[in-house]
Each structure stands twice: as C-alpha cells, then as structure tokens.
C-alpha cells in the first residue's frame, strides 16, 4: 500500500506542478485562443476516431489471437507489439515512407481527395499505428480470461456463433476490453512523435504545445499542456463513468 502511494505521488507531482503553476487567467486565455481550441477539437476527434477504429478492427484480431493456435498467434502478437517498441518518430518515418506524397499509395489517395499526410486522416493513421496495440493486447488477455466452456455451453444450447460472442464472451471480457480502449484513447491524446512526422497540420494539442515551446519556451507551452491534461482527464472520467457496458 505504502509503495503504491509512493508511485502515485510520483505520477501526481508533475501533474500538480503543471496545474498549480498555471493561473486561471492564463488558462482561460489559452482556451479562448482559436488555434488552441481548434487543436483541442482535432485531438479529441482524432483520438475518438482512433479508439473507434481500434475497437472495430482490433477486437476481432484480439479474439482471433485469444482463441487461435499458438503457431500463428505467437508471431502475430509479436507483430502487434512492434509499434510499441519503435520510437514514435521512427513509426512516423515508416508511415511516411509507405503513405507519403511520393509513394504510390500516398499519391493515389491524394488524387482521390483523401491525402494521407498533413490531413485529419494522417493524424488518425499515426495514432492508430501507435495506440491501437493497447486495445489488441489488453482485449486479447480479456478474451483469454473467458472460459471456453461458457461459449461451448452457449453453442450447445443452440445459440449461434455471433450471438454467443455478443451475449456471452463480450460481456464477460468487457472490463478488459474497455480498459484497452481507454488506454488507446489516452495514448492517442498524447501522441506526438509520429503525428509530427506525418501530419503537423491539422495541429493536435501535442503539436500545438511543441509550437508554443519552440517559439516562446516552457512558460508558453505549459498552459497548453494544462489544457491537454484537463481535457484528457475530463474525457477519461466520463468514459470511465459510462463503464464497461458502454461497449456492449
């Protein structure tokens, strides 16, 4: 308990330092700044989209990994973890070399009116690469915690595969799945390195913090960082209150 409190203190001190050193007037000024508000919207929108995408694409993958045979789940799990190993800047450079304007995918998408760099889509691509593994890995262990015999019992009672998944497996795995999605959302809100490489515009809050820092230094960057902290805490508390049932 005492050791846990020590860690909590370690997490808490920087946040407290960030929040108490900012005067409410300064924070209000930043919230009124059109650039900061736009960046906040982009951050929330992109992190939300990334979380939804991670759920749509990541949960089937997580379920497959939880139930599949070892010979393929082990290498695939390693592949899923790979984005967590790369420094985000490296992830950004790799994404640029696949989706950049000089690649065939990038130029085809740009011709079709959906540029994959310097666009909202680019922000989502960067965040999904870096943050969706949290959903897959966490949901995988949540699905593994659901005993197979419950699914088998449901199937024996004549329930279909899909209904069993929806009515038996997902509700039992829900807390773990929700935790993974929360992690993905939080990581997306803070994503900077990969976003800087592939997008920069439209600016997210982390990019806006960096711009404030490189133009006027720490004193200018901290109020924007406080906006990011407050916004993220607000959303995470809201999502937490909705509870695991939100994903049923």
């Amino acid at each position: 308990m005492g050791l846990g409190a020590l860690l909590l203190l370690y997490y808490g001190l920087p946040l407290i330092a960030l929040l108490i050193t900012q005067s409410p007037a300064e924070l209000g000024e930043r919230l009124a700044d059109a650039q900061v508000r736009r960046a906040a919207l982009v951050s929330l929108g992109a992190a939300g989209t990334t979380t939804v995408l991670s759920a749509l694409l990541g949960l089937p993958l997580a379920y497959g990994l939880a139930r599949g045979p070892d010979w393929w789940t082990t290498p695939v799990t390693a592949l899923v973890v790979l984005p967590l190993v790369f420094p985000p800047i490296v992830s950004g450079m790799l994404l640029l070399s696949v989706f950049g304007p000089s690649t065939w995918i990038g130029s085809a998408a740009a011709t079709a009116g959906l540029p994959l760099t310097r666009s909202f889509a680019a922000v989502v691509l960067a965040q999904t690469f870096v943050a969706s593994p949290f959903t897959v890995i966490t949901a995988k262990s949540a699905f593994e915690g659901v005993p197979r015999r419950y699914e088998q019992a449901s199937r024996l009672l004549g329930t279909g595969r899909w209904t069993t998944l929806r009515r038996v497996t997902l509700p039992l795995a829900a807390p773990g799945v929700a935790a993974g999605l929360l992690l993905t959302f939080a990581r997306s809100m803070g994503e900077f390195g990969a976003t800087l490489m592939v997008a920069y515009y439209p600016r997210t809050l982390p990019v806006q913090i960096w711009v404030a820092f490189t133009t006027l230094g720490l004193d200018s960057a901290f109020p924007v960082a406080a906006v990011l902290a407050l916004l993220s805490i607000l959303v995470l508390v809201l999502l937490n209150r909705l509870g695991p049932n939100a994903w049923e």
Partner: peptide
Amino acid sequence: LLAGGACTSD
C-alpha cells in the same frame, strides 16, 4: 467532435 475535426484539414 469528429465532424468538427474533419473540417479542419488543409
């Protein structure tokens, strides 16, 4: 929010 975010691209 998504709609708002999507409008801000170049």
